[in-house]
Simulated assay, not measured.
Amino acid sequence: MKRVPLIARQTLALAIAVVPLLSTAPAANAAEWPAKPVRIIVAAPPGGTADIVARLFAHALQSPLGQTVIVDNKAGAAGTIGVHGLLSAPRDGYTFLLIQKGIASEVPHAMHVSYDPFKDIVPIAQLTRQGLVLVGHPGLPAKNLGELITYVKANPGKVDYANFGVGLRGQTIGVQFNRLAGLTTGTVSYKGSPPALQDVMGGHVPLMFDGPATSLPFIKSGKLRAFAIAYPKRIPALPDLPTFAELGFPDLKEVSWMALWSAPGVPPAVVAKMRDATLKAMQTPEIRQKIEDLGMEVGSPATSEELSVDVRESYERQGKLLRSINFKPE
């Protein structure tokens, strides 16, 4: 029988001893997580809605996680800079992304992106839910949605919508509403809600579909008139504002949401810990009230798989609408 050299036997023994240690390393890391500050990338500038939400959760998560939670703003390119920041970080569970679901369901239709929206980013916890509000200049002769439809029909092609980004939901919901109501309008695209809202309030463009968080202060101050909200129910911040469904347009109820996202490859136990801590934070009265004050609702406890299905369905609907108007991505 051929003898195995001593060095070879020692090497084999060492390898056998190390294998169990290697197999338990991820579990040990997950048990110790977080051992250093956690970073949340926000694909938006400081002071914006996403930034406000991120800082609310960063503060609320510090106690249960036992670590500082840092908000890192990486705005630009419709959120794709934030996505690249997430994907370039180590997959160790210390970097997450906070952004709207549109980063996966809308942006890939609107522009050429270098990431796969269904493979490269994973929604792990829904933070907020919101709809889009149809707002207009207060000088419009219409006081409600019925009067607005009558007014637009009497002025075919003379009334425009402002939108917060070409190829995004703010544009395509106008297309959808026009078809349902039998209207003919134009559209004017802007880079974000603030400049679009300024032109609506200035009387340069009469109408816009906008998120409640950015339009709410102007609605309450009388600088904008709200006609209806595309959401399954009325929202606490605008209890007198009817939904489109109440007014005869049940198809206009899609829910937009903001979520915490992870890159694939992060240890599942770490993702589960972050998700659980986030869901618990959402139930605190302070978080719930502040999110309602922004014109939104606290997110649901939907699973990552359920959120991914919703993203896919929204992606398909958005693509169909854009193809119907022969839209070409930038």
Rank of each mutant, 00 (worst) to 15 (best):
G146P: 09
A35N: 07
I124Q: 11
A181I: 01
I287G: 10
L61V: 09
T243E: 02
K290M: 15
I103P: 07
L197P: 01
V18M: 00
L134D: 01
L180K: 09
G131P: 01
P217C: 09
M1V: 13
A230V: 06
K143W: 05
V135D: 09
K223Y: 02
M282C: 07
L260S: 05
P34S: 11
G211M: 15
F57H: 07
I103L: 09
V71Q: 04
R275H: 13
G136Y: 07
P242I: 00
L21K: 11
W261R: 03
Q289R: 05
A181M: 02
L6P: 08
A44S: 13
L65T: 05
S114R: 08
F227W: 00
S114H: 13
K290D: 00
L134C: 07
F227V: 01
P206A: 01
N155K: 08
V38R: 08
Q126D: 06
V122D: 12
P138L: 07
Q62L: 07
A154P: 10
W257F: 11
E106W: 03
T68A: 14
G66K: 00
T11W: 14
T150D: 13
Y161R: 03
D199Y: 09
G136V: 04
G139T: 08
V255Y: 04
K119G: 14
N73K: 04
F164H: 14
I16F: 15
G167Q: 00
S308C: 13
P141A: 01
I291M: 07
E313R: 10
G47Y: 12
Q318L: 04
N29C: 03
V4D: 11
P236F: 03
L148G: 00
P90E: 03
M258N: 11
P5W: 10
D251E: 11
A110N: 05
K191E: 14
L260D: 04
S221C: 05
G85M: 10
A142L: 02
P232K: 01
L12D: 10
Y115M: 05
A142T: 08
P138H: 10
L180T: 07
V18S: 03
L241I: 02
A277G: 07
K280H: 15
A35Y: 00
K153L: 00
A75L: 07
L140S: 09
E106V: 06
V159E: 03
P301H: 10
S308E: 10
V42Q: 04
K191R: 15
Q126M: 11
F244H: 01
Q10P: 12
F244Y: 02
P285L: 14
Q62G: 14
M274R: 04
A13D: 07
A110K: 06
T185G: 01
Q198S: 12
H84T: 09
V175N: 06
A31F: 12
G265P: 03
N326D: 15
L247F: 01
T128P: 06
M201R: 02
S114M: 12
L6F: 13
R323V: 08
T150I: 14
W257R: 08
A60I: 09
A181V: 00
A28H: 08
V270W: 05
A17H: 06
